[in-house]
Design a protein around this nucleic acid. Structure first.
Lengths: 235, 235
DNA sequence: CGGTCGTTTGAAGTGGTTCAAGCCTTGTGG
DNA sequence: CCACAAGGCTTGAACCACTTCAAACGACCG
């Protein structure tokens, strides 16, 4: 039986693999990071990761999913990105002018980067800090792809693009099996990230399903045909 | 008669005012920066600001306009942002995987930030470097607004939002006079930043013009009704 | 076993695209 | 100084992608 306060071993391994593959972290540094992990912050689904300090804080996600989003005056939402294990997110103090909030989609385990690295040996600290910053930069550069997605692609193309992105990210951290992976979100979340209505997301998913390119159902994507998706992303 | 190699005095003043107002640069630091400016890099309209070094370089724009953009495989463009005097842009080495290139829209005068600050006194350098980095961060955070624009707003709302953004940015650097400012771009550029067709941009501009909210013609925006634009941005 | 939330489908409406043509403005050369 | 070309702006008409509204169905949860 798992102890409630112990981190599930495999969770941290996925996160470590992801950070290492994105940032080129050396095996030695990854190993020291694994031993440094803690204290683990746990959030339930639907929680806001907000920095209590006036300055933003970096958080490294060990398990679970989160998203960056903003609620508009009229109650609609725009989701900016999804964050998975191994990703670094910028948790900001809550205030009106904040560009976005980080909200958990499932229960989430993460660590505060500054706090964790503070206990590292000097030799490790610089390298680990570099890796964490780079991971954040990589996530930020995905925003260019997202703007192209919203500005220049049709509904089916946006969906194909999103599924490819998520597939590749999760594949890198070993969370894809046989072209299937868990994606614990609803069609409404997909609508909010792609700037579409839920109804149309549903219809576009059906299109992909009928073409045997991918199936999304009940929080799981299966039957991914990556090459086929790439084709229908472009036209 | 103006010497070809001399910087037009007022240009640098606008850029300095912009940097100071965005980053809270002290008057003393702004003054030292003004004396440090140089050597000035000049680009004709349509040039690509690419870093020769393998690493990206920060450039500080003194005069002229540029944009961050990417050309898609099918030849269409997505423009990510417009950059005006006082803005800091990240000039990247040209290669396939680069998220975007910086392209000039007019002739542009700028300086390399690292090169310019290298000649600063130690006391100034840290403060000036902080300001330049902050200016870049502010520009990057505008991307959240842009995603909302593309994901959740109609054509007229996008246009209103864009005009408000540009008005406020140019107002801060003293380039707005009587609700008018120069915007040396074509309707096609507007289409490419808003993810619309040129034809529809034209019709939406007409809508704003008929409502007396703003007029864009031949590279100049006039008759801005900021409050009115803000209303039509939201519904 | 009923309630709630998510998914699916249909039908009607609308906002934006595309294609095509004409016009206006600016720059160039005779 | 005028003629002409080229690029940008403007408008109309037809088409299509996506939205909205409405209703039914399915899965999961107490």
């Amino acid at each position: 039986m798992q102890q409630p306060s112990a981190l599930h071993r495999t969770d941290a391994e996925h996160a470590l693999a992801g950070l290492a593959s994105v940032t080129g972290l050396s095996a030695a540094s990854a190993e020291s990071l694994r031993r440094l992990i803690g204290p683990i912050e746990r959030y339930p689904a639907g929680a806001v990761l907000s920095s209590i300090a006036p300055a933003p804080r970096l958080k490294w996600i060990l398990s679970g999913w989160a998203c960056e989003m903003r609620v508009l005056p009229d109650g609609r939402r725009q989701i900016f990105s999804f964050s998975a294990p191994g990703d670094v997110v910028l948790s900001r103090p809550v205030n009106v002018s904040s560009p976005c909030s980080v909200v958990t989609l499932t229960s989430v385990e993460c660590v505060d980067v500054a706090q964790t690295l503070a206990r590292a040996k000097d030799a490790d600290r610089a390298e680990l800090w570099r890796a964490m910053s780079l991971a954040l930069t990589v996530a930020e550069e995905r925003r260019y792809e997202e703007i192209i997605r919203l500005g220049r692609r049709s509904a089916v193309q946006r969906l194909a693009d999103l599924l490819i992105e998520l597939h590749d990210r999760l594949d890198r951290i070993g969370l894809v099996e046989n072209g299937s992976f868990n994606l614990p979100i609803t069609q409404e979340h997909i609508a909010d990230v792609l700037g579409l209505s839920v109804v149309h997301v549903n219809r576009s998913l059906k299109t992909l399903r009928l073409k045997n390119l991918a199936t999304f159902r009940f929080g799981r994507v299966s039957g991914i045909d990556r090459a086929g998706l790439e084709k229908s992303r472009e036209n």
